[in-house]
Write a protein that binds this DNA or RNA. Sequence first.
DNA 1: CCTTAGACCTGGAGGC
DNA 2: TGCCTCCAGGTCTAAG
Length: 278
Amino acid sequence: MPELPEVTTVSQILQEEVQGLKISQAEIFYPKLIRDSTPEEFIKRVKNQRINKVYNQAKYIIFELDTEMMISHLRMEGRWAYEKEANFSYNKIIMEAQFKFHHQETVLRYYDLRRFGTLQLVTKKNFFENNPLDKKIGPAANNPHLTGAWLQEKWNKKHRAVKSLLLDQSIISGIGNIYANEILFAANIHPKTPGNTLTRQQLDLLLTESRRILNEAILHKGTTVRTFSPTVDSHGNYQKFLQVHNRQGKKCPRCYGTIIKIQLGGRGTYFCPNCQPS
DNA sequence: CCTTAGACCTGGAGGC
DNA sequence: TGCCTCCAGGTCTAAG
């Protein structure tokens, strides 16, 4: 799925739905879902723990339990659904995990068509003393404290195309393919521009536009593309505001030139050659 | 160290 | 209809 706005939306919905519920039983139907422990150990560690809070760090969903942090990454197609046990929101076959709760008829399920998603436990003590996510990913792209000066220091030895740098979660986290395309259009920057050649002004603009676009997308509950929705019966609406993504051959909303699509680092890349010159 | 291809998975869309 | 190829909102690794 899902980039930062969609993951934020999903975790906000989950927070409302499952906060306070106490897990009576967990079941894992696809063992490779679980990272860093066996499914058996995972099941044992979450049993009888209460979900105290659900929130996200960039593209990771974090369930704060009593003594464990349960960390979910949806990758491309992962979905959580809080639903009646008899109702399956998605194909039963692609259900990978199920959580039952004390005194509840509703269950929490994880579905993943492409089976890329991951679920792992980190003890709370470990998480708060030495958050493993902080070692893996940089600050979130909508963090208001990021500055162009900081980004210049991070990118000044990077020859790579700016689009691939925006997608590199170890530097800035939360931006994926759709929003990378939208942010570069908003900042009038050609996706292939080498990171180390961007001016301080362009870097400042990139960060302002990242913040603006991600935060607006959160307000619209994310972008619904293909099959993803925050829940089965709710949809994100940000797709109405997309300027270039998936719009090759259509008119640029700014200059009325034609949007083109190229491959960059294996990802579909959409831009307006007129507004974003090389 | 930096950077890029390939791998991991499945199903839908479009061409012939 | 059937078969083939390509594509999809992500990340990890192996190898240059």
